[in-house]
Simulated assay, not measured.
Amino acid sequence: MALTRRRFSGEMNYWPSFVDALSTLVLTVVFMLSLFMISQFFLSQEISGRDEALIRLNSQIAELTELLALERAGARDLADNLAILQSGLDAATAERDRLQAQLTAELGAGAAAGDQASQLSTALNDERQVSQRALAQVELLNQQISALRRQIAALEDALDASEGRDRESQTKIADLGRRLNVALAQRVQELSRYRSDFFGRLREILGTRSDIRVVGDRFVFQSEVLFGSGSEQLNPAGTGELDKLAAALLELEAEIPAEIAWVLRVDGHTDARPLSGTGRFRDNWELSSARAISVVKYLISQGVRPEHLVAAGFGEYQPLEQGETDEVYARNRRIELKLTER
């Protein structure tokens, strides 16, 4: 939107070329902010989806890890059983060999040992059957161990794949965070440009008085410009300056889209000297707050929308300078204006 050319205090005009350039800048800012809000919405949706996927992935990893631990415990039990059966098989084999040798010796002794040989042969057959059963069990255990090893290998592969997906997700989330930080930095830069443009306009409107100046990102009125000593009532000179400020704010309200939340914060500050105690204010807190409220109410009376104004009092606790001279006291007594987000 192009700014309407105005006169302030009968001295100042906006050049048409400056108006066009400023309109182009405002439209560019609005367009960039709209793009940022849309991209931020999609980024937040993507990050939310990635977080849910990561939670599910971590849950699956925990389940796989628990199952792997159970399978490994089962493998250890089977290995222990196999060792016990192998030991029994070795003992049975030794006993079979001993009986075979004894049988051979007894057979050589003659018919008198026939009954004993028959008993030994029966015992030998029994031992052979035990040995065969033990071998069958050993073979079954070997097959079970092989199956467990395959399951463990599959679980380890699944765990490695899950860890790989987790690392990939973390990388994507970190990339999204970096992109979001870049977008936020761009937004802060655009807001800083807009604030600088607004304060530049105020500087042109209010002139180059030594008691009205820009300090950092704030526009500063010395208290004596607006108020009498110890009073929160605006003096005629102060209302004249605030009329100029109100006109600039009305133009600003017309330019900024309704979806952009912004406020002009009005901060009241006093010097460090305590009040006499005979006036209507008990301390500097009350005086600084009352002065800020007086400025806000006057701007509202000139048509500025209340939702774009904030009043705050800081007493003597945020001085611009340290010291106890009259000059330092005078600089610390002030009203500060700061354009910021709501």
Rank of each mutant, 00 (worst) to 15 (best):
S23C: 07
L141V: 02
L176A: 14
A69M: 04
A161D: 15
V19Y: 04
I212Y: 01
K244D: 13
A185Y: 03
V138H: 08
V188E: 15
L124I: 11
A136R: 04
D326M: 12
R167G: 12
S146N: 10
N181P: 00
R178V: 12
T270C: 14
L54A: 12
L252C: 02
T208Y: 08
Q144E: 14
S118C: 03
G238Q: 04
L226I: 03
A247F: 07
A183C: 03
S301F: 01
Q137I: 03
M12G: 05
R333D: 13
A330E: 10
E232V: 01
E327I: 09
E52T: 13
L124P: 01
A154K: 01
A312W: 06
R203V: 05
A111C: 03
G177P: 02
I173F: 02
M32Y: 02
E253H: 03
L242F: 11
S17C: 01
Q302Y: 03
I256W: 03
E95N: 14
E190Y: 09
S44W: 09
T239I: 13
Q45W: 12
Q60D: 15
V304D: 09
M12P: 00
G216F: 02
S210Y: 10
D160A: 14
R50E: 10
E127R: 13
L339W: 15
S121I: 00
N125E: 05
A2P: 00
S196V: 00
Q233I: 11
E307P: 09
A62K: 09
Q233F: 05
E106M: 11
R201F: 04
G268S: 05
A185L: 09
T208W: 10
E63R: 14
K172C: 00
P236N: 07
L89N: 12
D97M: 10
Q86P: 02
G238Y: 05
A75L: 10
S210D: 15
L54C: 01
A94Q: 11
A248P: 04
R193Y: 08
A183N: 11
E46K: 13
F42L: 08
A117Q: 03
T340W: 07
R149L: 02
D271Y: 06
Q132G: 01
T104E: 12
I152H: 06
R218H: 05
S223L: 03
F227P: 12
A92L: 04
L337C: 07
L68S: 14
G238L: 07
Q151V: 02
R201P: 00
A94V: 07
G216D: 11
V225G: 06
N332I: 12
L191W: 09
A330V: 06
L180W: 00
G238V: 02
Q302V: 01
L124D: 01
Y194R: 08
F314Q: 06
E327A: 14
V29T: 08
G88V: 08
E259D: 06
H269E: 10
L70R: 11
M37F: 13
L202D: 12
I55R: 12
F18T: 13
L70P: 02
G323D: 06
Q129L: 12
L103G: 11
V220A: 08
T270W: 00
L67N: 12
E63P: 07
L124E: 04
P319H: 08
P306W: 04
R213I: 01
S210L: 13
A183R: 15
E11F: 00
L264V: 15
Q60E: 15
